[in-house]
Design a protein around this nucleic acid. Structure first.
Length: 831
DNA sequence: GATCCGAATATACC
DNA sequence: ACCGGTATATTCGGATC
């Protein structure tokens, strides 16, 4: 039979074939007519041996082919070898491909190979067998394929809950765009509520499900007038059984949650184990299992589990406005909908203590739980284009891509393209290497020019288009192309300081595979941008985002200790070249008669002065003529006005802090308190007002009036407490702090009161009046205080004034007091 | 005991 | 542990007078 299908999940299982312990690949997917399919296929497990020079490769190959051993209760052996001409680190050489019986045997066989004196290196020893299959068979996740073969109907490949089991004779990807035809998986979002926060410690009270068609909630806490979605069950045991049966009945392709790797599924599994219930929701009827990691991943074979929190945390969060990546904030920003508000602490405590909760409150709790599932489902739909595009780009299974950090995605993309360069992949670094790499000293990074504080008219901003990626491409930078010494015709860096010495590094001109792969990302992004000009679709936007973020992450990957192609010298070279070009460009702009106000990494802000925009664009054109390779300077925008302020300490202008007013009236604020989440709302709002007023009007008259009013309101305690809450993240466990700041002190109080707070959480507090000298001794949980019980002095002197005084100094207000520390604050209060 | 200053910490920019 | 370095500001906490 022949079917059209799309692979969603992959795994491999052991299978005895003709008396041998082989491994077969199981591809879990959907056919074009919506049936569940499991395609069975195989690939050859192998790795590469690079012999030392002067080794008789034929003899060595024969020697390798005879490896056979008993290990961990299995017969591990080499089933064949092949001599091949391949490339490693960009250099051609003769190598031996060593085929083993089963992918699990690579570990033990390579250890034997290591002891042979002929062996120089062994490579691709740590590639997952699924990755091996995807590369060698060109069967890639979330792309449409044809599969031909024999349909079977028994338990040979597990207790499979699928419509078709196909032993494939051939699996081939569809040609061109047909492979990337849209696919929308059937999803099911879920969420649980429990009596205790710690995994498995309390009981699971309720579980809810949602997708576009279905909403359902199971709970054993009965209450009057339940919403129609609610099904009451006897107890937690039945709740867990219904969790399983509901999923089995719905037959989703994807199960999605928010923080479900770290909370919902570990909780469900722990409680199910306690009741002796198997959560056999996988397509092969196996239990939910956990893969070790910093935070474990919950895996369900076939049914792909996507924890949206991980995808948001790894991939989206740097580009979100939200102050936290909680479901509430992220859904608000991306879906335009929020969580329902309930007092979770009170409710769960009541249930833990066995107290009766009012029917109305219980009803609201159920709706809250349902809404979480609904939000998660909506968020999934919103993020699906991003997840698909990233998965299709880097070609690893959806399960892995949805949990990967950028460094891993960059690496997957490299690994899946190596075959086009006949290149053998480098191994993952070993623990000792990682430890050493982590200790390496920092290298010099980007250049930031100190601005002169002031307010300026007509500010032009130029920036380099994808600066770092284009430098990598134009100078062919990467580990394999790197040379310590000058080597014939090669690119060379400017002289720069590296590990305390003046150095120059070199890169061969023969196109390296990493710069080539990166160049393809940049080229494909250009095409997408052209298409986007014609029509904007979520898919195209997601593709653009994937290309952009992955190319930007390549530079960081070079300096990342876990990278297979780790090369801090390459990273330092990129930074040095970028510094050289930004300096040169600043000079060029200055030589053309402009005053450069500020520059950070890849952007330059300068004043038009008496010159025209046209003249500025002429300079841009000239600069571009002189830039090498694919490098390009672009006009970001012409701004009407801009402001730079002084640092709080010392005389210098503050870097990474400015505000620009566009011609259309919008304001771009960078670095100021108003964009920092650890400042109270009052300080942020007031500063925002002041910045807008001074930029709009070019003077500080109205801003000053406003500030006087606000200070009077603070003194009169007319400011609501909500605007005085300070939010600070607890970045490590409470016990680990060497210095106890206000937020740590408050976190301790929270823990004493039984309010859940943990590493990574945001601590909210208000500074109360009192005689205690240390601020942390006056820091209170907002609920502890009555309205108006705040320290006006603190909010004026430590929040409000610091946020706005630098801006007023630009206009000569109270600047005479600037050097005298605290006195200046008094003078501002006089206004 | 007040004051100074560096360390610790959080967060932003690119 | 899960991409890099550059930079500012706040609060603590120990050294110093």
């Amino acid at each position: 039979m022949k079917v059209k299908f799309i692979p969603l999940d992959f795994d491999y299982i052991d299978k005895r074939i003709e008396g041998e312990d082989k491994a077969v690949i199981r591809i879990f997917g959907k056919t074009d007519d919506g049936k569940r399919i499991c395609v069975i296929d195989t690939a050859d497990p192998y790795f590469w041996v690079l012999p030392k020079h002067n080794v008789d490769i034929k003899k060595f190959s024969e020697k390798l082919s005879k490896i056979s051993m008993q290990h961990a209760g299995r017969h591990a052996r080499v089933i064949g070898t092949k001599i091949a001409k391949k490339s490693f680190m960009g250099a051609e050489r003769e190598v031996i491909q060593v085929f083993v019986n089963n992918p699990k045997d690579i570990t033990s066989v390579k250890d034997i190979v290591k002891t042979f004196k002929e062996t120089e290196e062994k490579k691709e020893i740590d590639l997952n067998f699924v990755t091996r299959y995807i590369i060698d068979k060109k069967v890639t996740p979330l792309r449409w394929h044809h599969a031909e073969g024999k349909e079977i109907n028994d338990l040979e490949y597990g207790d499979l809950d699928v419509d078709i089991i196909l032993e494939a004779s051939k699996v081939s990807q569809l040609e061109g765009k047909a492979a990337e035809e849209e696919f929308k998986p059937k999803i099911l979002a879920f969420d649980i509520e429990t009596t205790e926060f710690d995994i498995g410690k309390g009981e699971i009270i309720m579980v809810s499900f949602a997708n576009e068609e279905v909403k359902k909630l199971f709970t054993w806490k009965k209450f009057k007038d339940p919403p129609k979605e609610v099904d009451f069950v006897k107890n937690e045991e039945e709740l867990l059984e219904r969790f399983v049966s509901f999923i089995k009945k719905q037959k989703p392709d994807v199960l999605t949650g928010y923080f479900s790797d770290g909370f919902d599924l570990p909780y469900l599994r722990t409680r199910a184990d306690m009741h002796g219930i198997k959560l056999n929701i996988a397509w092969d009827n196996t239990n939910v299992s956990f893969i070790r990691g910093r935070v474990p991943s919950a895996e369900i074979r076939g049914l792909v589990h996507v924890d949206l929190f991980k995808f948001v945390d790894n991939i989206l969060s740097p580009n979100l406005q939200s102050e936290t990546i909680s479901l509430n904030d992220v859904a608000k920003e991306l879906v335009g909908e929020e969580k329902l508000k309930v007092d979770l602490n009170k409710l769960t405590k009541e249930m833990k203590d066995g107290k009766v909760t009012k029917d109305e409150e219980m009803r609201r709790f159920a709706l809250y739980n349902l809404q979480d599932s609904v939000l998660t489902a909506k968020l999934f739909d919103k993020l699906w284009p991003n997840i698909v595009e990233m998965t299709r780009l880097v070609q690893e299974p959806l399960f892995d891509v949805s949990r990967s950090s950028y460094s891993h995605l960059v690496e997957y993309n490299i690994i899946h393209n190596l075959h086009r360069f006949n290149e053998i992949g480098e191994n993952r670094p070993i623990r000792e290497d990682i430890e050493q790499r982590r200790r390496r000293p920092k290298y010099i990074g980007a250049f930031v020019k100190e601005p002169t504080p002031g307010i300026y008219e007509n500010v032009a901003v130029f920036d380099f288009r994808s600066f770092y990626p284009n430098v990598i491409v134009s100078f062919n930078i990467s580990l394999p192309t790197f040379r310590e010494e000058k080597c014939g015709d090669c690119f060379e860096t400017p002289e720069f300081e590296y590990e305390g010495k003046k150095r120059k590094f070199y890169f061969i001109k023969k196109k390296g595979f990493i710069p080539s792969i990166l160049n393809e990302l940049l080229e494909r992004r250009k095409e997408v941008k052209q298409e986007l000009k014609k029509h904007r679709t979520p898919i195209l936007e997601a593709r653009d985002y994937a290309f952009k973020t992955l190319s930007n992450a390549t530079y960081g990957y070079f300096g990342f200790f876990g990278a297979r192609y780790y090369s801090p010298k390459s990273a330092a070279s990129i930074a040095a070249i970028c510094r050289h070009y930004i300096h040169k460009t600043i000079e060029d702009i200055e030589k053309a008669g402009f005053e450069v106000a500020y520059s950070d990494t890849d952007s330059i802000m300068f004043l038009l002065g008496k010159k025209s925009e046209k003249e500025a664009l002429g300079v841009l054109e000239n600069i571009n003529k002189s830039l090498p390779g694919t490098m390009e300077l672009e006009l970001e925008k012409f701004y009407k006005r801009g402001i730079f302020v002084m640092k709080k300490t010392g005389e210098a202008g503050a870097k990474k802090k400015y505000a620009l007013l566009s011609r259309d009236g919008t304001i771009k604020i960078r670095g100021f308190e108003s964009v920092r989440r650890d400042k109270c709302g009052l300080a942020k709002e007031t500063q925002d007002y002041v910045l807008k007023a001074v930029l709009d009007e070019g003077n500080a008259d109205n801003a000053l009036k406003h500030v006087k009013k606000v200070i009077a309101e603070v003194k009169g305690k007319k400011i609501p407490a909500s605007k005085l809450i300070i939010r600070t993240q607890l970045t490590k466990a409470i016990e680990e702090y060497a210095s106890i700041g206000p937020h740590v002190a408050v976190a301790k109080r929270m823990r004493e009161k039984g309010i859940p707070i943990r590493e990574g959480g945001l601590v909210e507090y208000i500074i109360a009046e009192g005689t205690e000298k240390l601020i942390r001794e006056r820091a209170r949980i907002p609920e502890e205080l009555d309205e108006g019980e705040y320290d006006t002095e603190y909010y004026i002197n430590n929040q409000l004034v610091p946020a706005i005084e630098g801006i007023f100094t630009v206009f000569g207000i109270s600047s005479d007091n600037l050097k005298e520390g605290k006195k200046k604050q008094k003078s501002l209060k006089e206004f």
